[in-house]
Amino acid sequence: MEDRDSIPKADAVIIPGAKVTDGILSAPLKDRVDTAVLLYRWKKADKFYLSGDRDETSAMRNTLIMQDIPKDSIVIDEGGMSTYDTICRIHENAKKEKFLIATQEQYAKRTAFLAKKLGMNARCVRADRMFYQNVGKTKLREYFACTKAWLEAVVLRPGPHDSLKKIPMKEVGER
């Protein structure tokens, strides 16, 4: 975790989705959520964008609510099926906002690259709090994810897989 004083204030924290099994957050996703809650408690941001599929966003929402995060500070994005989609969609939804993105160090360069290329005012905050399994597999996956990110952000610029019209973002109270 970075030094508290080095993290700037932002409008919101983005929590990209990751594996959820039977409603239980994987270790990396738990670290992201815990980091986002810490940023909220440090008054670095007062809003959360949860991005991923329905299982991921539902489990993250429940975890945040159990940690006394107000429901009206949570926005759900079930159309963020990749980091590229997440950044495209959230930036389109809130162009003028400043963001912190809670993610693991190994994903931070790719995530920051995408945010910059897509025009989002964002900074990644390291969310590495525990040991993760399958590190070799994750590094291999990240190699290909970086190549895909470069192609999407520099060459193809396809826009998100699902538009905000097709899958709109929702405040938790609207769900």
Rank of each mutant, 00 (worst) to 15 (best):
E2Y: 11
I7S: 06
I7H: 07
P8W: 04
P8M: 10
P8F: 00
D11W: 15
D11T: 10
A12T: 02
I14K: 01
I15K: 02
G17R: 05
A18H: 12
K19L: 13
V20L: 09
T21Q: 13
D22W: 04
I24F: 07
I24K: 14
L25F: 05
S26G: 13
S26P: 11
S26E: 08
D31Q: 14
V33W: 03
D34S: 13
D34G: 09
T35S: 08
A36H: 09
V37W: 13
V37F: 11
L38H: 15
R41N: 15
K43Y: 15
K44T: 12
K44V: 14
A45W: 11
A45E: 06
D46S: 15
F48V: 08
F48H: 03
L50A: 07
L50N: 08
G52N: 08
G52K: 05
D53E: 10
R54S: 10
R54P: 01
R54I: 14
E56P: 00
E56V: 00
T57L: 01
A59E: 07
R61M: 10
N62S: 13
I65P: 04
I65F: 11
M66Q: 12
D68A: 02
I69M: 05
I74Q: 01
V75M: 09
D77M: 08
E78N: 14
E78F: 03
G79P: 01
G79H: 04
G80A: 06
G80P: 07
S82E: 07
S82Y: 06
T83D: 06
Y84H: 04
D85L: 05
T86A: 04
T86V: 12
C88W: 01
R89F: 07
I90M: 06
H91C: 08
E92M: 06
A94I: 04
E97I: 13
K98L: 14
K98M: 13
F99Q: 04
L100Q: 05
T103Q: 12
T103N: 14
T103H: 07
T103E: 03
Q104C: 15
T111S: 09
T111M: 00
A112W: 06
L114D: 00
A115V: 06
L118A: 02
N121I: 01
A122S: 05
A122E: 07
R123H: 12
R123C: 14
C124G: 02
V125M: 03
A127I: 09
A127T: 03
D128F: 10
R129N: 10
R129I: 04
R129T: 07
M130E: 14
M130R: 11
M130W: 00
F131K: 14
V135R: 04
V135K: 12
T138S: 10
K139A: 07
F144P: 02
A145H: 02
A145Y: 06
K148V: 08
W150G: 04
W150R: 11
A153G: 08
A153I: 02
V155K: 04
R157Q: 10
P160I: 02
H161L: 08
H161Q: 13
D162S: 05
D162R: 04
S163Q: 11
L164S: 05
I167F: 08
I167E: 01
I167K: 03
I167P: 05
P168R: 03
M169D: 06
M169G: 06
K170G: 00
V172W: 11
G173V: 02
